[in-house]
Simulated assay, not measured.
Amino acid sequence: MTPYEQLFQNNRLWAEEQLRADPDFFNRLAREQRPDFLYIGCSDSRVPANQIMGLSPGDVFVHRNVANLVNNVDLNVMSVINYGVKHLDVKHIIVCGHYGCGGVKAAMQPRDLGILNPWLRNIRDVYRMHKAELDSLEDEARRYDRLVELNVTEQYTNIIKTAAVQQSFLARGYPTVHGWVFDLRNGLIKDLNLDFRETLRNIQEVYDLTGTVWR
């Protein structure tokens, strides 16, 4: 059996296991999804969204790309946010980076990476905005980890800039946006404890898309 063929064998075994544990599992899964969580993460194969949060299929709406970017001209991520907020009524949006991110590391290196250049420039812009802090870190590994955290913070802010999030929060009091980092070295999620309401207040003078001032 080839590695590709093994995937179908794995799938059959998985489906049988789910039915043994819960005969109604797939009946529930086939119904309309109503997840509370929208997860925006990195495409890295070592960071599976559902598993690291201990959630089952149907519990989390997922978007992944290289280095978990939220770029306002990326119709893919913007469509996911809009659909998640306006149609799935997600209560929480999580942008999750991870230590050891290849995209972030690539952005730290002065190399021409071809088609990746415009994508990674978003991370290089984060480095530029925080250059003094990052350059003050003599340990390269710590500088790398810190850029991962700062990149998450920037993408978290980009989510709050969107009309869908602002309008929904004003009308319904949700979603709340969160910034996380997954640590491959111990399997734990680090909550950056970013203050959603404070961030919203701080950016609304420029990015408010509702005409309403939050207090």
Rank of each mutant, 00 (worst) to 15 (best):
R31H: 06
L29I: 10
A21I: 10
E32W: 07
F37Q: 01
C42G: 09
N27P: 06
E32N: 11
Q33G: 08
I40M: 11
N27F: 11
A21H: 05
A21M: 12
L19R: 15
L29S: 04
Q33N: 08
A30E: 09
E17Y: 10
E17Q: 13
F37G: 00
C42H: 02
P23R: 12
R46I: 10
L29V: 05
F26S: 01
R46C: 04
I40C: 07
L19Y: 03
R31N: 03
L19D: 07
E16V: 05
E17I: 08
R20P: 00
E16R: 13
P23M: 11
I40R: 02
F26N: 05
D24T: 14
E17S: 14
E32Q: 13
F37E: 03
S45I: 12
L19G: 03
N27L: 09
R28A: 00
S43W: 08
G41E: 00
A21Q: 14
Q18R: 15
D24L: 13
F26G: 03
P35N: 00
F37R: 01
I40L: 15
R46D: 00
G41H: 05
D36A: 05
A30F: 06
Q18W: 07
Y39C: 04
R34Q: 09
I40D: 00
D44W: 11
R46N: 12
N27R: 14
L19S: 13
L29W: 02
Q18M: 15
P23D: 06
L38H: 00
E16Y: 08
S45W: 07
Q33A: 06
S43D: 03
A21G: 09
S43H: 03
D24I: 07
A30V: 03
E32I: 08
L29Y: 06
D24C: 07
L19Q: 14
L38C: 06
N27M: 12
E17P: 03
F26W: 03
E16L: 06
R28F: 00
A21T: 08
Q18D: 11
R46E: 05
G41R: 01
D36Y: 04
L38W: 07
C42E: 01
L29P: 05
D44L: 13
A21V: 04
E17G: 09
R31P: 02
G41P: 02
L19V: 15
L19I: 15
S45C: 10
E17K: 14
Q33V: 09
D24M: 13
R20S: 13
F37S: 01
Q18Y: 11
F25R: 01
Y39W: 15
Y39R: 00
R34A: 14
F37H: 14
A30Q: 11
D44K: 08
Q18T: 06
A21D: 03
Q18S: 07
A30K: 11
F26H: 08
D36M: 01
N27Y: 05
R46F: 08
S43A: 12
R20V: 14
R46A: 11
E32R: 13
E32K: 12
P35Q: 02
D22E: 15
E16G: 05
P35T: 02
Y39H: 12
D24Q: 14
R34M: 11
C42V: 08
R28S: 03
P23G: 07
Y39F: 15
P35D: 00
D44E: 14
S43C: 11
E17T: 15
G41C: 02
A30G: 09
R34P: 05
L29N: 04
R31Q: 12
R20A: 14
C42T: 06
Y39G: 01
R20F: 12
L19E: 13
E32A: 14
N27H: 12
D44A: 12
